[in-house]
């Protein structure tokens, strides 16, 4: 049975190594500081007692009223059968930039391209950041809440 690592425990684990990294914890996820994302993920993957070797899913949510986009990472350890959800908030909604996780989990490659395509989040360090589904000339980011389909 997959143990959903309690976000509070996960936050404690991360804080023990990176005191500044955790911004907030709720019942679902641990919210990290954007600057600490890559090193925390690297640590989560490489530390043998954690061994979070599998990025299940990466996506974004547009919280337009609070003026930020939130990226959600579901990370799993196949070895220990444990799961934790990480989150990162972008700084505003105009051309947000988030570090890419492709070097840690290769599966992020297509999913980050999808997020770039549909939400317009740029991923620093992504090797091939192009639109995944829509054509290159497409203007706007369809999954943002202020996207008006007919206005295109």
């Amino acid at each position: 049975m997959t143990v959903r690592l309690d976000p509070a425990d996960a936050a404690a684990l991360i804080r023990a190594r990176f005191p500044e990294a955790v911004e907030a914890v709720d019942g679902f996820a641990v919210r990290l500081a954007t600057s600490a994302l890559v090193e925390v993920c690297q640590y989560l993957r490489d530390e043998p007692s954690l061994a979070f070797d599998y990025l299940v899913m990466e996506t974004a949510v547009d919280y337009i009223e609070d003026d930020y986009l939130e990226l959600v990472y579901v990370v799993r350890s196949l070895q220990h059968n444990r799961e934790v959800v990480l989150k990162v908030r972008t700084d505003g909604r105009d051309d947000p930039v988030v570090p890419s996780l492709v070097d840690i989990w290769q599966t992020a490659e297509f999913q980050e391209r999808e997020i770039y395509d549909l939400f317009g989040v740029r991923f620093a360090g992504h090797p091939d950041l192009r639109r995944l589904f829509l054509w290159d000339e497409f203007r706007g980011y369809p999954l943002r809440k202020d996207f008006l389909p007919l206005a295109q």
Binding site: S49, L78, Q79, H80, N81, R82
Partner: peptide, 9 residues
Amino acid sequence: ARTAVSAQS
């Protein structure tokens, strides 16, 4: 084998 590893950690 994996269950054993999980139990240890």
